[in-house]
């Protein structure tokens, strides 16, 4: 392996990391926001309860195949239920990034599993 090849290899190996650094940070921020704005009803582990839907399981089935932007739009206009529309677009994106990450879903584009089975 030449030096040039080694640098190229390292760059390629790092690329996904660079590409996912922003979403990962966003999801971490989203987790904080979730605890503050959503967990009271949906539960600390997204488990929901008899009255409030879980944000795992059926949540994935309900949104699979939809554009992430559609989920963001829904969260932005409908949540939190007691004060809909109060989350900024940035905070909404961060919360959705967290929800996607927590469910093993790909960031951006269409809602789908990271590793399709």
């Amino acid at each position: 392996m030449t030096m040039r090849q080694a640098i190229l290899f390292t760059l390629i190996a790092l690329l996904p990391g660079i590409a996912s650094a922003r979403p990962a940070a966003e999801a971490t921020h989203g987790a904080d926001l979730y605890r503050a704005a959503c967990a009271m009803c949906h539960g600390p582990t997204l488990e929901g309860n008899f009255q409030t839907p879980a944000l795992t399981g059926r949540f994935v089935a309900n949104w699979a195949g939809a554009p992430v932007a559609e989920l963001e739009s829904y969260v932005h206009r409908a949540m939190p239920l007691m004060a809909p529309g109060t989350l900024s677009p940035e905070d909404t994106r961060a919360i959705v990034a967290f929800l996607l990450q927590a469910n093993g879903l790909a960031q951006g584009g269409t809602i789908r599993r990271v590793h399709p089975s």
């Binding site: 009271m40 009803c41 009255q51 409030t52 239920l81 007691m82 004060a83 809909p84």
Partner: peptide, 8 residues
């Protein structure tokens, strides 16, 4: 309760 959507 008018205007209150606090479902908790």
């Amino acid at each position: 309760g008018v205007g209150n959507s606090f479902e908790h």
